[in-house]
Design a protein around this nucleic acid. Structure first.
Lengths: 184, 184
DNA sequence: TTATAAACAGACCGGTTGTCCTGTTTTGTC
DNA sequence: GACAAAACAGGACAACCGGTCTGTTTATAA
């Protein structure tokens, strides 16, 4: 039951945003009564916080961090993620954007609890990339690359490219940015 | 009167977002009655569309396109804008994000009229950068640089960096990304 | 079985939202 | 000065929002 609510909320926040998603819509979509929803999530804010810490963080983990760690190098991992996302977006035919960025824009200034939860995910994301660069350096690669700087640039480029892809409803800009990034 | 409403709406959309800004708040802040607002902007959507086409487009023009065109080169222009924005954010002590990206995230999927208006601004932005690169190439510089690719990368990096800066309320990531970008 | 709490149902409420409507005032034009 | 159009005032309204409340059912453990 709690999982059903979280599923629907994650989907709706992604597609419509937090403020545009009413609890009534979520209840109807999840087939849940008001009492049940209120029992698990006393307020709408609590629900959003749960979506962020339980679902958005997991989405970054699965689409970015795990593929990156499994890649032969940081650079190859970044390329693989960009391409995998681009392929996925092209297959489904529409672009809803990065879950983290969507909520970050809407909720970063809507309460410090939101902001802290979001900034933690960004920090973990960047650290995973930086750690991978350091791994490469231990193996003799990536000399002269600042791990933190590379991580920040990769995350920023991905986030910005997803923004444009969402607005233009075209994943092509992801590939364009990836090609520019790989020239570093 | 119309200008007052637009001023307040631009400010509120930037600080709180579209859905979180009620017309009642805007009316109170602008000192405007419901009738006057309805006369100039029949619906809230019309108001947002006016903010996008009249104010957000102008903000990009003034903070990005004009400084870029006045710069000695595309690369120098991009650096100048990043640094100017970073300095401005540090002086004011808080980060509200890029006006275009804020509205793009919230409204890209909320109607094609919004999306088209936003994508036009992105396109003009990228074209101005690409044109500047082509200028450099006519002067013998930037050999081997794809103008469109460089423009997409610059916009994506800026947008993503501003997202992170907004979430962390720290403009430092802007400088970090700029340094990475300039190594290209 | 029984006691105890968690999980869920469903109606209810005050407040707010965006929009609309009927007048009144101002502005521009001949 | 007459008149039409635009600009503005301000109330009214129906729909909806998030949150609360009181019961009922289900699980857990002694």
């Amino acid at each position: 039951m709690r999982r059903r609510v979280l599923d629907v909320a994650e989907e709706s926040f992604q597609a419509r945003g937090y403020h545009a998603s009413s609890l009534g819509d979520l209840m109807a979509a999840a087939g849940v009564t008001g009492g049940a929803l209120h029992h698990h999530f006393p307020t709408k804010k609590a629900l959003a916080l749960a979506v962020i810490t339980e679902r958005v963080a997991d989405a970054i983990q699965q689409t970015w961090i795990e593929p990156l760690q499994a890649a032969p190098s940081a650079r190859a991992g970044v390329r693989a993620v960009f391409e995998a996302v681009a392929v996925e977006l092209e297959q489904q035919g529409y672009v809803r954007g990065c879950p983290l960025n969507n909520l970050a824009h809407e909720l970063s200034l809507a309460g410090d609890e939101f902001r802290v939860a979001l900034v933690d995910i960004f920090a973990g994301w960047r650290q995973a990339i930086a750690d991978k660069v350091r791994d490469d350096q231990l193996n003799g690669g990536e000399v002269g690359t600042d791990p933190e700087r590379f991580a920040a640039l990769a995350v920023a480029t991905y986030s910005g490219a997803m923004s444009m892809a969402k607005t233009s409803q075209d994943a092509g800009v992801l590939r364009e940015c990836l090609n520019g990034l790989q020239k570093l």
